[in-house]
Write a protein that binds this DNA or RNA. Sequence first.
RNA 1: GUGCCUGUAGCUUAGCUGGUUAAAGCGUCAGGUUGUGGUUCUGAAGAUCGAGGGUUCAAAUCCCUUCAGGCACCCCA
Length: 437
Amino acid sequence: MALSTQPYKGARDFYPDDKRVLNKVFENWHSVCRSFGYEEYDTPIIEPAELFAAKSGEELVNEQSYAFKDRGDRIVMLRPEMTPSVSRLVAGKRQELPLPIRWYSIPSCWRYERPQKGRGREFYQLNVDIFGVEGLAAEIEMLQMIDALMLSFKAKHSMYEIRINSRVLMNYILGDWLGLDIIEQKTIARLIDRMHKVPGTEFKALIEASIAPSLREQGAADRLLKILKADSLVDLPVDLLENEGSKTILKLIKICASLGIANVKFDITLVRGLDYYTDFVFEVFDTDPSNNRSMFGGGRYDGLVGLFGVDPLPTVGFAISDVVLMEFLKTHNLVPVAKPETEVCIISIGETYEHSLKVSAELREMGVNVAFDITNRKTDKQLKSAVKKGVPYVLFVGEQEAEDERYKLKDLQASSEETHSIHRIVSIVKDRRKNKN
RNA sequence: GUGCCUGUAGCUUAGCUGGUUAAAGCGUCAGGUUGUGGUUCUGAAGAUCGAGGGUUCAAAUCCCUUCAGGCACCCCA
């Protein structure tokens, strides 16, 4: 029985053609993060299971995790997300890190799920977090970064929308305003999260079924259903507008608008599954009907760092996965094109193998990426494979050229060739590189 | 974890209601008289038809099981 050439279920192989695109995506992520003054960190892919227990969502930990025992009987997990790990790092140096802490990372994460469109078991995830800022300025910065990230892929504002909500407001509505107990609050929150996927009448029935009869008689269900229809903040009753969460949202939308980020919208049905969020939450949606989905999200989680026994630290962060982002880029025709980094293929003709070796070495020393075709095949075959690989230049080294130390450089796109010295060749190739970037 | 759909050479497919050595295009490799491509011509390699079992004189083609993939639900990046 031959071995399978397929990758493990839900995990991916990146052939060079795919890897170049992925790298391009990463490059965009890196450069946006750096431009906002964020620094990269990294952590192990394996963490003790208890790091995630009770901090992430229940289902994420119990049913969707790669958990196993190591040889010392410790229960470990492949990280399903990065947030608990960053919090661990920050807590570990809580006293010495200058605030605010602006960090990012691109870890690969693992979740035991059934793969489907835009979701695998393994994925890369850009994680961006800012620690140590209590006020709205942190939220604003996150939204600004998201705007810059989307822009770095040439996305237009019409292609996506940033929906925001506040857990403070939501908790107030469900708790004080409606008078639900903790368990009811949880189930109702779940339901609200799914509101747009369930038919209206069924949704109403589900809500009513989850509310205690005494409250139902006071009209709690109807009050809730009514405010869930709110399209914008001003549709809410006045007493809810007084809530701190509402004020936060209002200010955020206003400031974003003044920054030209007009696609930020209040969405009262936005909940998010992770348990650690404390106030501001958001999700970015693809507006294209064929891919109308939540792409990524984040929010404020002020409680996580403190769980490590140090003083708490207010935090806002978000995460984007490469898998979902690629779906977005595909539907909007924005997938970056990425050519190989090889700039010159050397084709040696006649008895010039050793001379060609020297030429390649010289070019490399001067910073040119050179692939010497050492297959010794016929010239046209070598040329063809250079073309197919997408290399911009071919350099012919024949016996005459070797003698003159001037070589024929062929521009494969322009389909022109000129004979030059090595130095001239280097500057031509480097000029091209500059113009490309 | 639940439901639906799919599974023939590396890729895209043909193969009618079961019948001798399973076709084609693309790609790969080689050659078209020894220094040039994105044209053309010729040739080669490459599939026990996802796997296992069954029905039948006979199965890629019918039935069962299983595996893999896709999509939706769940959940989420």
